[in-house]
């Protein structure tokens, strides 16, 4: 049997086939909503964010201070032992400069790109990072290894969410 003889099926459509109604479609726009419970570990994490603090959880067996916090250690597979406050500063592990929204829409002309980053939080175990975004910095000035600090919403604005931290900004070393 040779590939040349194989008969591959499948019919490619063009956008014009839809517009000109050569092909009929049925559409539905769902309006589903979900309310996700915070959980035991993340519940405390969110409460502390509302207070303007970042909290982690320590496993005494492997010694890891974990962020985001968790009530069980996935390595030792046992309960974690204690709450540990960590700093609201850290180091950029890696970052991107994004010109697309979550749904692939492009940002508008003149709009600032998003700068998502993995930030290793000071006080947590080495390599323990979280996803957040950077602000108060020009995209071309961002470098991996840069030290950053959380910029918080005001206490009145904070609701107990990861977005209580508006963004992380570079620490200017003098």
């Amino acid at each position: 049997m040779n590939n040349k003889k194989l008969n591959f099926k499948g019919t490619a459509l063009r956008s014009s086939d839809i517009k000109e109604k050569k092909v009929l479609t049925t559409s539905w726009k769902p309006s589903l909503q979900y309310a996700w419970d915070d959980g035991v570990a993340i519940g405390r994490y969110l409460k502390e964010l509302k207070n303007g603090k970042i909290i982690a959880r320590k496993c005494k067996k492997c010694g890891r201070i974990m962020i985001p916090p968790r009530m069980f250690c996935e390595l030792c597979f046992r309960p974690t032992d204690e709450w540990v406050y960590v700093k609201d500063t850290g180091i950029i592990n890696t970052f991107s400069i994004s010109y697309v929204h979550w749904d692939a829409r492009r940002i508008k002309e003149g709009e600032k790109p998003f700068i998502p980053a993995v930030i290793e939080i000071d006080g947590a175990s080495e390599g323990m990072g979280i996803l957040h975004v950077l602000g108060e910095v020009d995209p071309e000035d961002v470098k991996s290894g840069m030290r950053v600090k959380a910029v918080w919403k005001s206490p009145e604005e904070r609701i107990g969410a990861i977005t209580d931290i508006k963004y992380f900004k570079p620490i200017i070393e003098r």
Binding site: W36, D38, S96, H101, A161, T163
Partner: peptide, 30 residues
């Protein structure tokens, strides 16, 4: 791409409105 939003953690990541490409970009740079 929009359908990928819910692969991210619903409490600690989704509120940041991540696009799937973000994690690839972060990994590629690393």
């Amino acid at each position: 791409a929009g359908a990928f939003l819910t692969i991210f953690d619903h409490t600690t990541e989704q509120p940041l409105k991540p696009n799937l490409i973000w994690i690839f970009a972060l990994e590629m740079r690393r």
